[in-house]
Amino acid sequence: MKIKPFLGALTLAAAATGVQAQTVSVEVTNLTHSIYFTPLLVSAHVGEFHLFDIGSAATLELQMMAEGGDISGLVASAESVGATNVENPAAGLLGPGTSVNIEAFDTGNNGFLSLTAMLLPTNDGFVGLDAWEIPTEPGSYTLYLNAYDAGTEANDERVVAGSGAPFVAGIPANPGGNGEAGGTGVAIEEVNQRIHIHRGNIGDTDPDAGVSDLDARVHRWLNPVAKVVVTVQ
């Protein structure tokens, strides 16, 4: 009988924090026709933390991810608040129409899930999930994610080798090929410098000239760009 108050106290404590250790699986599908995701960062963290704040200027760490696919800064930021991270689960690019499944992701005491990856070929587009509260009830939950623009680089749509670093103009790579050259540049400045829904690639159909190095028939997309199935075990 003495054990009962003790159990009661434990229950209360769990209720007070609102979170408990959970194991989830996370399946990410790239729904697009011809857009690649750079190495994914999937992070379980406390509710006050955000990898990105829609409507706010990007952090330098987010800019590194969105312009060059470098998640190291976001990883460090998340770790600094006790997040548990899965880095690069697809071991490289997640191509169009492909999926990666993260099994048995121990979220620790972190009750919120976020995800980011740069979209290639774009200047600073990324797919994102921002601090989704992980349900405690077991089951499968399907989320559809939109493409965002980090607002840190003009969408010139020119493919320039080595342009993945922050503050270097250009799209660093076009993994699928079927692109173009000789684009004069679509946008020359990024007017909206806050994180917003990406307006999409423009592209053109001139292989050697025009404004863009992207193919308008190939490198556009319509939201959503990713499907995420979170299974709470």
Partner: peptide, 20 residues
């Protein structure tokens, strides 16, 4: 084409600069 099913990227149309 790519030979797999994906979400459609949308059409361009001549109104958006694709003359052909």
């Amino acid at each position: 084409d790519m030979n797999f099913v994906a979400r459609h990227p949308g059409i361009v149309s001549r109104a958006d600069g694709y003359a052909e």
